[in-house]
Design a binder for these strands. Structure first.
Lengths: 229, 229
DNA sequence: CGCTGTTTTGACGCGTTTCAAGCGTTGTGG
DNA sequence: CCACAACGCTTGAAACGCGTCAAAACAGCG
């Protein structure tokens, strides 16, 4: 399917937003859309894919498959996020759709030539990757905590920030984008511990659960305190 | 101190190696050397530094200071490594020298203008940051394991790889670059647990300790198995 | 030699994992 | 239409592993 940048929901946030209309159209001719169902794999571990993508709608997860077959979530990708490693192909990472998602796919060489043609694109990608690096390190700091209560509180705060429109204030009411299994996976805990810690947070009045995945922040300050502790 | 690229030990590995001699000299005029003693801080958390650096000799660590004052190691920087976030300044990261080190310092705006002038530099930095991202995610996968024995084994394997000249084979004999406290910090464990697990590795015949920091790999295969499992 | 900082080792308690059961929802087929 | 399986989430009880506290061995250095 051809790209329709004019109606793209992330047209002014994605990396390609630094291009003007004609440049963007030139790039668009080399890429194409793809729709992923929930659970579908975009890039599989072990494949030597040399391709990259921008997420336009939905959500993805980046996972690594350990030598013992255990899966571990390394990052989440939100709309306007970029996926792709140019210089060493995806060898041990797997990209999986969390919900139905749409991506803008490009071949590696096409993006590389586009970077040569439009230096602003290289800088935009540099910015994106640095943001990813920052997010990865934040998650590392979270997963490294020895207190499970703090980890779960921090994860919920992170999701609240991501769900919010404004960058500084967390959303008061939102849906967890991950199952308990995926939450546990991100933090290196078990499903049961995550479940217990969430109920504990509810019992101490920091949050209220609505439905299976719904979270309402009742006392964000208390949640932050617990995340620090 | 002025830069002396001609004698730089990382002149053909660092990001600036993509420049030719005249371009490099032009860039060198805008930067300067700095020597750091072990434990000295390059960029402090909370400072809004807009600067970046390439490490020429020594080793650095990147740490975050949590809300509760706990320090957490996010990454190690080896020679030819690059430190710097262009678009959002170092707000919560701290860069500390592990040993006596030398860096090549630049102001943020100088590097940004150099990227405009030399598009190849932007691509080289993109490559570096993607490598950092990969390293960060590898560490995340390691820290996320629930088995302390596997974490310590994996960490030692990682150090063995880094200490080796060849990229694929680990060094048989090397010195741990970190104290027990720093090792524990990277993995989210305690000093005592790390110490115990290392002695356990020695007792089961995977490694031999020589001195305080020295490690000799006796059975790398067993070590890999333990790291997986 | 006596100091300080790092590492090792021991004993104990707590927190997380493990194993197991129960519940609500969803989807499928008789 | 209902029974039944499948799935995700919660909750409980017991076992193990790591953290905590404490002390001792060791090396570096004034």
């Amino acid at each position: 399917m051809n790209l329709a940048c004019a109606t793209c929901p992330v047209r002014d946030r994605a990396a390609c937003s630094v291009l003007d209309d004609s440049e963007r159209e030139n790039l668009a001719r080399r890429g194409h859309h793809r729709t992923l169902e929930a659970g579908e794999v975009l890039f599989r571990a072990g494949e030597k894919v040399n391709a990259c993508a921008t997420l336009t709608t939905g959500a993805l997860k980046v996972t690594s498959i350990d030598a013992d077959g255990q899966e571990h979530i390394l990052a989440l990708v939100h709309p306007a996020g970029f996926i792709g490693e140019f210089f060493q192909p995806f060898d041990d990472h797997e990209i999986v759709a969390l919900t139905q998602s749409q991506v803008c796919l490009f071949n590696g060489p096409d993006i590389e030539s586009a970077m040569d043609e439009y230096p602003a694109l290289a800088r935009a990608l540099l910015r994106r990757v640095q943001e990813d690096l920052h997010a990865s390190r934040s998650l590392l700091a979270l997963a490294g905590k020895s207190d499970a209560q703090a980890q779960v509180a921090g994860l919920i705060m992170g999701f609240a920030q991501a769900a919010s429109d404004s960058p500084c204030h967390p959303a008061q009411k939102f849906e967890l984008p991950l199952s308990r299994a995926d939450c546990a996976n991100m933090l290196g805990l078990t499903i049961e511990t995550v479940s217990r810690k969430i109920t504990a947070l509810e019992k101490m009045g920091a949050i209220v659960r609505t439905g299976k995945r719904g979270i309402e922040l009742v006392d964000p300050a208390q949640l932050s305190d617990l995340a620090a502790g």
